[in-house]
Design a protein around this nucleic acid. Sequence first.
DNA 1: GTTACTCCCGTAGTCAGCTACGGAATCAAG
DNA 2: CTTGATTCCGTAGCTGACTACGGGAGTAAC
Lengths: 142, 142
Amino acid sequence: MSEKQCSMTIGVLAKASSMGVETIRYYQRRGLVAEPEKPYGSIRHYDEQALARLHFIRTAQWLGFSLDEIGELLKLEDGAHCDEARALAERKLDDLRRKIAALRQMESTLDSLVERCRCSEDPQRCPIIHSLQGKRDVPRAD
Amino acid sequence: MSEKQCSMTIGVLAKASSMGVETIRYYQRRGLVAEPEKPYGSIRHYDEQALARLHFIRTAQWLGFSLDEIGELLKLEDGAHCDEARALAERKLDDLRRKIAALRQMESTLDSLVERCRCSEDPQRCPIIHSLQGKRDVPRAD
DNA sequence: GTTACTCCCGTAGTCAGCTACGGAATCAAG
DNA sequence: CTTGATTCCGTAGCTGACTACGGGAGTAAC
């Protein structure tokens, strides 16, 4: 379990990360995952680092980063260009915070809607929509 | 400002919502925005409700709802099927909460990264990536 | 050493969400 | 009543992120 063979084929890696083989190959083509050591025969072998990277991609993606952005994040990995790194991180952080705020607002809206729905005698006025129509200026962000 | 003419053409509406005309027409085709009163001549006129709806769509979209989901949300507008509404809202709420949690985690990670970056003597070890590689099980959600 | 599974690699297709195009009709100005 | 911008509508194209396909080569099991 914690003793992972340092050589998985792409299929095993796919299973381990619960992604498709094709997806991994796609990430390779996009330069998000390195194609490892040129094979002796001709089959590549992946290690835990590769797996970690796939996890990273998944998480970041789920959090709303595009593959391009993830690529940028990954470029920071070497630790060089720390300034760049920080700038990117700061922008992202800002974005994140706005998103969190919006989501929280949405959460409480939805929550109170659910509450009201639950106890409503008058099911004619579920006010989700109304409360979301307020013309807030959403930064068209990501 | 608060005295909006109750008749904008699609072009004006587009400007008011800062969306493209084509986008609005696309939403109409998808049934997210109604095409208003069959025109006398043949040009449609939109009111503030339409604008509000566009705001709604934008916001919801930014918050991670797909157009299909937005469609569902919008179907609740009439206030009927309150149960359905509540179920949908509850599912979304759940989703939202998981997302907020993940984003917060990411936020603090990024935040401490930025801090560390800022005061680091050793720019060789920006630890964003490392901290994101932890294999947390992201629900592949949305 | 044949069978059956993977792998490799390139190319092509899919889905969501737009965005652009083209041609006819309409409307507003002058 | 002509000019020029808009609208209308259908259809086609684009971007991001996959997903599938096809054919040849490697490899493991019997």
